[in-house]
Amino acid sequence: MSGGRIEARFADLAREDRAAFVAYVMAGDPDAETCLSILEGLPDAGADLIELGVPFSDPMADGPAIQRAATRALDGGMTVNGVLDLARRFRTGDEATPIVLMGYLNPLLSYGLETFATRAAAAGVDGVIVVDCPPEEAAPLTDALEGAGLALIRLATPTTDAARLAIVARRAGGFVYYVSVAGVTGDKPVDAEKIAPAVARVRQACGLPVAVGFGVRTPDQAAAVARVADGAVVGSALVDAIAEAVSQSRDPVALVLDTAAALAKAVQSARAGGS
């Protein structure tokens, strides 16, 4: 069992009346050891949950930043086993911070859904997001994950109407990932005012916390999201920091953790002052 880390974390944050800062990094970007150092530093930098990307050769819902991160990771030899190994090593030093794997279906199918679920749970993973597996196709994956005590985190988007939301809500676990814009990751900036009613609708329909991602890059955007949602997910901005550091031969760990710390601070203070 995952030990309910996701539920515990959101319950703690609700008591503090603040949203979660959810940090996304691609497993193995730019290499496994550097990635582990980044993961180990993220909780102290203020990450409340970690999304760990499982690299895929054909990431059809991702923009250029995460596409390139996947290419860097795969070129460095990252595999599904490698991703699980990173999670396991992170977990030996941190019992509380939830880890959610995020990727595409084919590597998991290839690995074997049940084997994957069992090993992910053993590695200390708490949930899984599979971008190209909508609820209609998710029964085998959900069976495997639930059997191992893992949550399949569902996605809702601006194109998800009320009728579909009922389908999304069925067997949803952990939290719901609300995709703020119709687009790919790192594409258009989020409009927090516009998403507020949608977030409320999703929270109501699913009975779960709602984290908002896609188009959340800057501390200001993260703060605006944190005022209306239960979590703000930042991916491309952190991944860009890795790419920038690598291209300038600087230390990616420091740059990513500094970027994360600024975002975390914005999320933590977002609701202070009652806005």
Binding site: L105, V131, P134, E136, L155, P158, T159, V179
Partner: peptide, 12 residues
């Protein structure tokens, strides 16, 4: 076969 697409595309 099936429809293995992101949620954004499912309604479409």
């Amino acid at each position: 076969g099936g429809r293995y697409v992101p949620e954004t595309l499912m309604p479409l």
